[in-house]
Amino acid sequence: MPQIKSAMKRVKTIASKNLRNTSQRSEMRSTIKKFEVAAEAGSKDTEQLFRNASKAIDMAKSKGLIKPNKAARDKSRLAKLNSK
């Protein structure tokens, strides 16, 4: 445990950021999974789920949760699934 006051503050801010990042990353993964399940099942609402998944990926990229190349790769993979 840190002894310096500023270090104690950093521990608190890092913990809150970690919680927020984990939550947002989990939400992104959930939306992607919902789309993948619907696409495999041949559901009719895949277009809306694809848009939601793409939006979640873009949000995660803009927040710095994932790198730009991973975002592009994931969106490409989902688009390929969507076109089937």
Rank of each mutant, 00 (worst) to 15 (best):
37 V>Q: 11
61 K>A: 10
69 N>G: 07
56 A>V: 01
32 I>S: 13
14 I>C: 06
3 Q>V: 09
48 Q>E: 15
2 P>A: 15
39 A>I: 02
3 Q>R: 13
57 I>A: 03
62 S>G: 14
14 I>R: 02
36 E>D: 02
26 S>I: 00
75 K>S: 12
18 N>K: 05
54 S>V: 07
82 N>I: 00
35 F>L: 09
38 A>L: 09
74 D>H: 12
70 K>N: 15
83 S>V: 11
2 P>Q: 12
6 S>D: 07
14 I>E: 12
76 S>C: 03
39 A>N: 06
51 R>N: 15
84 K>W: 00
26 S>L: 01
55 K>W: 03
32 I>R: 08
40 E>Q: 09
13 T>Q: 03
24 Q>E: 09
47 E>R: 13
35 F>W: 09
6 S>M: 05
9 K>D: 12
4 I>N: 15
79 A>D: 12
1 M>R: 14
58 D>Y: 00
75 K>E: 05
9 K>F: 04
54 S>K: 14
27 E>Y: 00
31 T>M: 05
48 Q>Y: 13
56 A>G: 06
15 A>V: 05
16 S>Y: 00
80 K>Q: 09
82 N>D: 03
12 K>H: 11
34 K>Q: 13
66 I>E: 08
41 A>C: 00
30 S>F: 00
67 K>C: 04
57 I>C: 05
25 R>D: 01
55 K>Y: 09
8 M>E: 11
35 F>I: 10
73 R>C: 04
14 I>K: 03
13 T>N: 04
33 K>E: 08
49 L>R: 12
65 L>V: 08
40 E>S: 12
35 F>S: 13
15 A>T: 10
65 L>G: 12
53 A>N: 11
61 K>H: 11
2 P>Y: 06
54 S>Y: 04
76 S>W: 04
6 S>P: 10
32 I>G: 14
78 L>R: 05
84 K>M: 05
40 E>H: 10
67 K>G: 15
16 S>H: 04
78 L>G: 13
26 S>G: 08
77 R>M: 08
44 K>E: 09
83 S>T: 14
41 A>K: 12
6 S>Q: 08
28 M>Y: 02
48 Q>H: 15
8 M>V: 04
5 K>F: 03
80 K>H: 09
2 P>D: 10
83 S>W: 03
30 S>Q: 06
62 S>L: 08
52 N>R: 10
56 A>Y: 00
10 R>F: 04
52 N>G: 13
43 S>W: 00
34 K>M: 04
43 S>N: 13
75 K>V: 07
65 L>F: 09
60 A>C: 03
22 T>N: 04
23 S>Y: 01
34 K>C: 02
47 E>C: 06
76 S>F: 07
83 S>Q: 14
30 S>I: 01
76 S>D: 11
16 S>V: 09
45 D>R: 10
2 P>G: 11
72 A>L: 05
13 T>Y: 03
45 D>P: 15
7 A>F: 00
62 S>N: 10
25 R>N: 02
72 A>R: 14
15 A>N: 09
37 V>D: 11
4 I>R: 13
4 I>Y: 13
59 M>K: 11
60 A>R: 02
32 I>C: 14
